[in-house]
Nucleic acid binder design. Sequence first.
DNA 1: TCCTTATATGTACATATAATCAGATATTAG
DNA 2: CTAATATCTGATTATATGTACATATAAGGA
Lengths: 136, 136
Amino acid sequence: MRGTGSIGLDSCGVRMVDIGKVAEVVAALPSIDNLEDLADAFGLLGDQSRLTLLVALLEGGELCVCDLAAATSMSESTVSHALRLLRAHRVVSVSRRGRMAYYRLADGHVRLLLDVGLAHISHTAIMYSEPGSESS
Amino acid sequence: MRGTGSIGLDSCGVRMVDIGKVAEVVAALPSIDNLEDLADAFGLLGDQSRLTLLVALLEGGELCVCDLAAATSMSESTVSHALRLLRAHRVVSVSRRGRMAYYRLADGHVRLLLDVGLAHISHTAIMYSEPGSESS
DNA sequence: TCCTTATATGTACATATAATCAGATATTAG
DNA sequence: CTAATATCTGATTATATGTACATATAAGGA
């Protein structure tokens, strides 16, 4: 069921070229919820302030708010707001000792994504991959 | 130079608790430009429409605009706009054959990030990792 | 208790972003 | 050339998002 090349309409009138392939892709797509969650996670990493804080935590292991602010040249308020969001999404976790709050990465996913991302930007610039023989 | 625990101010009056660690983190942080690029890349994946299109391309290999629209239940215009952004950032590439435009993933980085992300959402939910002994 | 420190929060504002619609471009067929 | 098809683009609008400022909470020290 591939490469039919047929042009057709589904029952709702949606135009398609390769009906078989579309069906294949639809079947392979994750659920809307999963895609939403994943987009959400990527979105959290898609802001420079938050990403910088996370990388700082990746490097430093555990840092208090004011050290995070110092290390990233951000205001403590900005840092606190960003951490609140990250906290809400369980990306970082806090240990309160005395009047300080020490943050660290709490999420294995994000740690891996950060590693993958950092590994590639350190390879100088962008690396384009060959088209790749895709598949059925 | 770790765990000094000293509280101090730098020459510009920035408050810090662990000066040594802050210096360490600052030294280890990627350049602003790199962080910007990385945040940018994550940001592209941080939208459900774009992410869905990219996953569709990851599964389908190469699809024309109308098939992408059909597979993702989005309007062709929305798809086209999203693809334009992705094209501008070299995340996808086009082959125009006749009056059709066939898109595919063009960027090895993104493919890897998608794989990592998808692998983890398929592991049901979130996996928390242990704190990790931070370093030096 | 009062004052200072460390962090958290609310609100407002300014900017950015994405979806939609209408129209433009480009390609093929007749 | 004209008509039809596939994709692209621009403008508008609605919503989301990041940031700054002011204030609130909470802890420790005098």
